[in-house]
């Protein structure tokens, strides 16, 4: 509006006349409040609903798994090797043992390296650019798809040796364990009070001994938790084993040979056209999931018992 010096100010308004009547105005406020509260309830309802939707598949999967799996389990499942196509019976004894061996190799290789790297990050490299870079790389490695790990190890070990092997499978899983263990070790060591390290230094204990016997020991419950979680995670991995451990229908206890593994066997059976094999796949899945759930739950209980009770 152009400013006009001769513009006469408007006559004093009768506000009561131009504004909506009090009654009407309060209705608008009330409607607004109702709308806001309604919206509040709608969103609350949606959040609850989505939680239910998320929990539903877990219940569905577990229920179906127990229903199908339990009926497939019998003694033969744990003692026999797979029966040839067309025959009834047979079990997954070789796959259970094979998984155990692969996981043992993975733990032997992955746990020390993971803990060592975590110790470096927490005790030696803290605050430095190298530690930051390593921490970031570990997080990135954690996100690399497991199938990629499988073909990388295939290219490194299997192609050289010209045959699949339990060892190659173990190496692939070990690499997948390292980043998880490294990060939990670092986090757990960071919770150990500095005063405890000082107590050891003050007694003239060398640094390596302080780390091993004091710091790591104090943080050990949390570190064990991390190792168990990493173990549970790789125990069910199938993709990295496809072209490394490869699978085996027969007994094999040699690290240097193709070996059966529970997840691999489940995969082979699941995509087969035979009902008998489907049955075994459900049984195998139940065994696998019980193994994983038990370790996760144990970890949970262990972790809840308190890591640093009474530490100042």
């Amino acid at each position: 509006m152009p400013t006009n010096p001769f513009h006469t100010p408007p006559p004093p308004q009768d506000f009561a006349a131009t504004d909506p009547p009090v009654q009407q105005r309060s209705r608008r406020v009330r409607l607004n409040r109702m709308r806001r509260h309604l919206w509040n309830h709608v969103v609350t309802g949606l959040a609850v609903l989505s939680t239910v939707i998320v929990i539903a598949p877990l219940v569905a999967i577990l229920a179906y798994l127990i229903y199908k799996g339990a009926s497939s389990l019998n003694l033969a499942f744990f003692t026999h090797i797979p029966a040839p196509v067309g025959e009834l019976g047979g079990g997954m004894a070789n796959a259970i043992v094979g998984s155990g061996m692969i996981l043992a190799v993975a733990s032997v290789l992955g746990i020390p390296v993971g803990i060592g790297a975590g110790v470096y990050l927490a005790e030696f490299g803290r605050g430095g650019w190298l530690a930051a870079a390593i921490r970031f790389t570990a997080d990135v490695l954690n996100g690399v798809p497991s199938i990629v790990m499988g073909i990388a190890i295939y290219s490194l070990i299997v192609m050289r040796q010209k045959h699949f092997s339990a060892l190659a499978g173990g190496v692939a899983l070990a690499i997948m364990m390292v980043p998880t263990i490294t990060r939990t070790t670092e986090e757990m060591l960071a919770t150990v009070p500095h005063a405890i390290r000082e107590a050891a230094y003050g007694l003239g204990v060398p640094r390596w001994r302080t780390v091993l016997s004091v710091t790591l020991k104090t943080a050990s419950p949390g570190i064990i938790t991390g190792c168990m979680l990493a173990f549970a995670r790789v125990a069910g991995e199938t993709a990295p084993l496809l072209f490394t451990a490869f699978g085996n229908q027969f007994w094999s206890l040699r690290l240097n040979q193709p070996i059966a593994a529970l997840p691999l066997q489940i995969y082979v059976y699941a995509i087969s056209p035979y009902d008998e094999w489907h049955r075994l796949a459900w049984g195998g899945s139940l065994v696998l999931i019980v193994l994983i759930m038990v370790s996760v739950t144990l970890v949970r209980i262990y972790a809840n018992r308190g890591v640093l009770k009474g530490a100042s």
């Binding site: 877990l58 999967i61 069910g236 199938t238 489940i266 699941a270 759930m293």
Partner: peptide, 19 residues
Amino acid sequence: VTELLAAIPSIVYGLWALF
């Protein structure tokens, strides 16, 4: 429970999805 969902292996999800 959501942690457990994360702990279920891919192969078990696949089996359930398939059947």
